[in-house]
Design a protein around this nucleic acid. Structure first.
Length: 212
DNA sequence: AGTGCGATTGACT
DNA sequence: GTCAATCGCACTA
């Protein structure tokens, strides 16, 4: 890579490299790139926080079977499932497991890399740390909405996953954020020491057995 | 047809 | 720290 120049020639992740298992995929995606090619320009970020919504998970949208909303969760791994949460924020998931099985990984936070000025415009916020820290914030920064639901994230297009040549760093684990069912499982993964991670990172959260 | 409830965020005390 | 906004969905009747 040439010094002083951003490397934009990223390659999409090969689907064959994606772990089929949802938890393994959630870990795997930490440190990878999320790339958005929009009319406004090229935007990318490094994934620093994910959550697994596994098979048989009462907190998962596929728990009660396939519906019109969640059918993308049942696609072959590496497809986008986008839905509107609280009528306010779009959530971006990567489908996992084998075709016909409903499970996925929620992307919860990005470290902004390319297109920072575009993200600032989309978010109406200037501070780098606040651009994509949170699942609803990152979709706003990247202009991800239901129109991107179901697209293949393993090939170049409006939204895709890419390789990152930087070392991921140490990965932390904790309970998931904002859910009430199946709430004690350690299915959230994040880059330790990253300021771009959402939510608390207390010891107690990382290990609920420390709670009194 | 009506109801309750979120995989959240931003504004405010 | 608390709380309202906001709407699509799943469920009941």
């Amino acid at each position: 890579m040439k010094p002083g120049r951003r490397q934009d020639g990223h390659l999409p992740l090969a689907r064959s490299e994606l772990p089929i298992d949802t938890v393994a995929l959630a870990r795997y995606l930490i440190g990878k790139l999320l790339v958005r090619e929009a009319p406004e320009g090229f935007v990318s970020g490094r994934i620093v926080e994910t959550e697994a919504y596994v098979v048989g998970d009462a907190a998962g949208h596929a728990y009660r079977g396939m519906t019109q909303r969640n059918h993308s969760l049942f696609l072959e791994r590496g497809h986008a499932y986008v839905y509107l949460a609280y009528g306010v924020s779009y959530m971006l998931n990567v489908s996992s497991e084998t075709p016909g099985t409903g499970a996925g990984v929620l992307i919860r936070a990005l470290e902004p890399l390319d297109g920072v000025s575009i993200m600032q415009l989309n978010r109406g916020v200037a501070r780098l740390r606040d651009l994509a820290r949170g699942p609803g914030r990152l979709t706003a920064a990247l202009r991800v909405d239901r129109s991107l639901d179901g697209i293949d994230l393993c090939r170049e297009g409006p939204l895709w996953l890419g390789w990152c040549d930087r070392e991921p760093g140490e990965i932390g684990q904790s309970v998931r954020i904002g859910i009430s069912r199946d709430a004690n499982r350690l299915l959230r993964f994040y880059l330790r020491n990253s300021p771009f991670v959402s939510g608390p990172k207390s010891l107690a959260e990382q290990d609920p057995s420390l709670n009194k």
